[in-house]
């Protein structure tokens, strides 16, 4: 009898563990990359070193941010004229980026907690816009 109860408790523990592994949140930030100074780079401390190492721009500023829960079910957020729609879990997240009603790209990604995924090159005048996805 005691062994049976132990097995049931172990199964419940595994179930809770799996549920917590799937749940989480996704932060999405819109960053303006430019050659001219302007805006604040606060809130970008985790990605500025990556930008400076890999991208040919000298200034980066936060143009907007939002978040959503994971797993997502066609969750759409508006950021600076772009809309970002996410579906799926952290391990298989489908992302669609639109500008107005124009679809720009579809991608499927795997996100690791705290490891940024950066989608960039969206035009905005002389500057470029960058989307930064980080799973928490």
């Amino acid at each position: 009898m005691r062994r049976g109860i132990s097995v049931i408790l172990a199964c419940l523990f595994v179930s809770l563990l799996s549920a917590s592994a799937q749940a989480g949140s996704l932060s999405v930030r819109l960053v303006r990359a430019s050659h001219t100074a302007g805006g604040s780079s606060s809130g970008l401390g985790d990605v500025i070193p990556v930008f400076q190492k890999s991208l040919p721009y000298s200034h980066y500023s936060l143009a907007g941010s939002t978040s959503m829960t994971l797993p997502a079910s066609k969750a759409t957020r508006q950021l600076g004229g772009y809309s970002v729609t996410c579906s799926g879990s952290q391990n298989s997240l489908a992302i669609t980026v639109k500008h107005g009603r124009k679809q720009l790209l579809n991608t499927s990604v795997r996100l690791s907690r705290g490891k940024p995924l950066i989608l960039g090159g969206f035009p905005s005048g002389q500057d470029k816009l960058v989307l930064v996805f980080v799973a928490r």
């Binding site: 991608t107 990604v109 995924l117």
Partner: peptide
Amino acid sequence: VTQGGLGSTEGGSHIKSLEVVA
């Protein structure tokens, strides 16, 4: 099914597929 196995290790974020429409 969703995590690719219980023993899957955490790596970096990466892209699985991509379609650029623009």
